[in-house]
Amino acid sequence: MTQSVDLGLPTRLVDVTIDGETVRVPEGATVLDACEAAGLDIPTLCYGDTLTPKNACRVCVVEVEGSRTLVPSCSRQAAEGMVVHTDSERARHSRKLVLELLGSSVDLSTTPRADEWMADYGADPDRFGPRAEPVQAGARDVLHTGHHGEPDGATAATVEQPPKVDNDLYVRDYGKCILCYKCVDACGEQWQNSFAIGVAGRGFDATISTEFAAPLTDSACVYCGNCVEVCPTGALSFKTEFDLREAGEWDESRQTETTTICAFCGVGCNVSLHVQDNEIVKVTSPHDNPVTHGNLCIKGRFGLTHVQVARKERRGREPRED
């Protein structure tokens, strides 16, 4: 379906210097690709391997000689002769500040690696003052663009608010949202083309929102969960995961992940079943799969989880006849 045409053109290679080491990467590769080739582990949040880089979070910035400002490694193409410093004082400073600014305004408790990076960069999100109390549900959905009340300086503003639970399949916990745009891009033109959500408002008051902040059940959402697939912080999560976490029973060390093929239509989507205690608790799809690119539809994403429950219930009722 997506096999590319081999045009027979040789890929040109470019040499870039990363922290003093010369790395050769194919033309078109990003600085981040080059850093990975050099064995470096650059933190990323808004970068998604199935999405066009938005370079919004700026946690992956590096210093490129000749550039006035720091450069987002996830989106900048490596160019011949480019000299990159990933660990300079300037680069580390901005990364640390990005982590602190996010950490002070967003609940990063379910963001993979956030704690590790905070420690690596010596980030202290608490130094902006005590966190402001979470606002009431919906309060951040009706802010007046371009107008905000003057802060009192006593607390650090956050985006924290109660989770939005308006359907049985997935939960939107926007107190954990870093506004990376990945869900919007996955729902929009890059993959799903349902456009159920967009970024609304502006600046710190911007939110991920349906039109007029309508409940998901009244929106264009088709519950493909492709937004959940790309969410880097756990702001979007399966209801099963959300409930298990609430109950304190979510335990990734007890989970297995097995990739198989969806049981529904003939497209052959690869589904990775995350199983805890012989229950499917989450379904993802491999991002490098040529059929799905990490995407599924409602049936593959959620229909399988419940099929198992339904089957158990049905089997429980029926006598075995074998």
């Binding site: 990005v98 996010l102 905000h148 745009y181 970024v199 502006r202 600046g203 710190f204 911007a206």
Partner: peptide, 18 residues
């Protein structure tokens, strides 16, 4: 600046608040 930041990037979106 806090009002006029578009909100895309973290340094500006949260930095102007801080």
């Amino acid at each position: 600046f806090r009002d006029e930041s578009c909100g895309q990037c973290v340094p500006c979106r949260v930095g102007t608040v801080r």
